[in-house]
Design a protein around this nucleic acid. Structure first.
Lengths: 118, 118
DNA sequence: CGTTCATATACCCGTCAAGTCATATTCGAG
DNA sequence: CTCGAATATGACTTGACGGGTATATGAACG
């Protein structure tokens, strides 16, 4: 089944990303996730299986419930892939910031700025 | 077509990741990518279309060729998504290191990994 | 113009993943 | 031991995506 190779394919699924985000704050049972995601229980279980087999989460048994929680490794892998690109765009951002700095010359902001997307 | 919404779904495709990695070093024509990826020209063009429409790349016309190059924004978005998770796992790595530090007080391991704290 | 090179688009096909429904499993309570 | 709650698994359907072949578009140049 699920021959999903890469961690990338795994987080491509919006519901799975949602699960990971939810688990960020605390571990949860399948039922809780089902409720928060507005998704059928079998679907949630399947996503959890995929996530578990890929090492994104692990489960703990408490009575009849399974409590799922995050595991860091696979996400660190993703992060690692981004490293060279980060180097790439930091150049660009520097250029952009220089440009912006030239355009606006007054705002007393503390620290560095962030950008927005349209 | 390709109703691929998120940037995540886009980089889930191995060939597309390969294209991005190649463009990291320099811009390339479709033909060059075709050769380097061992993929048919139409396939390459399609991937480039997806990447272009999602803002990952942009093209420049030079005679009959199209030269594609990277654009930083979408990847920065991905990176942004990872931020809270980074906070999460940095805790864990710290814990793991403390644990390891306690267990091994001398064993012959090559090097210790270090990382920063913000 | 017509030809050739470079790329884009159209159409078709096979595969695979995500969802649903139904059923199995496991545990705790009474 | 039986029942019900919580979760997992299986069978099946459906739709999207990636790949390929064939064809269109368009630029350069004789």
């Amino acid at each position: 089944m699920t021959l999903v190779e890469s961690s990338f394919a795994i987080i491509a699924e919006p519901h799975r990303r949602a699960i990971l985000s939810l688990l960020l704050s605390s571990e949860r049972s399948v039922g809780e996730l089902e409720h928060e995601l507005q998704l059928s229980q079998p679907s949630v279980s399947k996503h959890l299986r995929v996530l578990r087999e890929a090492g994104f989460v692990e489960s703990r048994i408490e009575a009849q419930r399974r409590l799922y929680r995050l595991r860091p490794e696979p996400l660190m892998e993703l992060d690692a892939w981004l490293v060279p690109f980060r180097r790439f765009w930091s150049k660009h951002v520097d250029a952009l910031e220089q440009h912006l700095d030239k355009m606006e010359e007054a705002p007393p902001v503390k620290g560095k700025k962030k950008h927005e997307k349209p």
